[in-house]
């Protein structure tokens, strides 16, 4: 047992980091692999659909992530418009799938947080947010498509929207005075209270920023993880494929889970932020 432990410690503590370091070194040194990685994850004008097929050059001021945003919107709009027109009483697979997403948002996100009465008014917004994020996240896992949510501008825009809504809804529903009164903790001295209120005020911005960063980093890092495993094949040797392809496949499957989870988390957190800011304490 003790012997086994030492071997494990040596392998995990020395050999694996050493290997990883040597394997990772060419990744940093070689400009080629690095740019290959970045072209898969970052925004750009060229859309490479498949290896050996020359990449499509998009027109100026039109980028791949923008294209993905349009595709996302079009997909959701087409699916939901087509199926909301011909709904039936006894639904089939597609209708159940499309409905259950909205039902999920309603029953697991909006109603528990906001309550039924306010939730009914807000349901379209949050279901739009959820569907938008979910589709944008999942579309990146399909080959030839990219994740638009892996771009800080997209997630930042959504987070800024949530931030603005927090203020607007808070001011509208409970008034400017009560909104700031909520930030002030009761039962403390004036100096400490003002300081805490200032921190609370800042935390509204931080929360939104973290909202953006979290989604962006999750999407970006997930795709980078898959690609890094695959890039090892180029860097090390073709035989590395036996190791890295199963790992990449595993990461890919994990990414499916994370995509759904992050869409849920973003929606849930924005729901909590907005509804917290607009409630009397």
């Amino acid at each position: 047992m003790g012997r086994c432990k030492t071997v494990l410690k040596n392998v995990l503590g020395k050999i694996v980091p050493l290997c990883l370091f040597f394997f990772a070194q060419p990744l940093f040194a070689e400009d080629n692999v690095s740019s290959a990685l970045s072209s898969h994850v970052l925004n750009g004008h060229g859309w490479d659909i498949f290896p050996y097929i020359p990449e499509i050059n998009l027109p100026e001021h039109f980028t791949v992530h923008l294209l993905m945003l349009f595709i996302t919107t079009a997909l959701i709009a087409i699916f939901y418009l087509a199926f909301s027109k011909k709904q039936v009483l006894k639904p089939k697979k597609t209708q159940i799938a499309l409905e259950s997403l909205i039902l999920f948002v309603r029953d697991d996100i909006v109603y528990p947080v906001m309550g039924e009465e306010r939730g009914r008014k807000w349901l379209p917004f949050y279901s739009t947010l959820f569907l938008f994020l979910l589709t944008a996240n999942l579309i990146g896992l399909i080959p030839a498509f990219k994740t638009a949510t892996g771009n800080i501008n997209v997630t930042g825009a959504l987070a800024i929207m949530v931030l603005i809504l927090t203020f607007v809804v808070g001011f509208k529903e409970i008034g400017v005075k009560d909104f700031f009164k909520n930030l002030y903790p009761s039962g403390t001295g004036l100096g400490i209270g003002l300081f805490v209120a200032f921190l609370e005020f800042l935390s509204i911005f931080t929360k939104s920023m973290v909202l953006a960063i979290r989604l962006f980093a999750n999407m970006f890092a997930g795709h980078m993880a898959i690609l890094s495993f695959l890039v090892l094949i180029i860097i090390v040797s073709p035989f590395m494929g036996f190791v890295s392809v199963p790992f990449a496949a595993f990461t890919y499957l994990l990414e499916v889970l994370i995509d759904v989870l992050q869409a849920l988390v973003f929606t849930l957190l924005s729901c909590i932020f907005i509804s917290n800011a607009s409630e009397h304490e």
Partner: peptide, 23 residues
């Protein structure tokens, strides 16, 4: 159900911090 939702929420909050470092 409630516990799981809150767990995911809290984990996501912490994960955001971890990603800060990674970024």
């Amino acid at each position: 159900k409630d516990i799981r939702t809150n767990m995911i929420l809290m984990a996501a909050l912490i994960e955001g911090l971890a990603f800060f470092g990674a970024i």
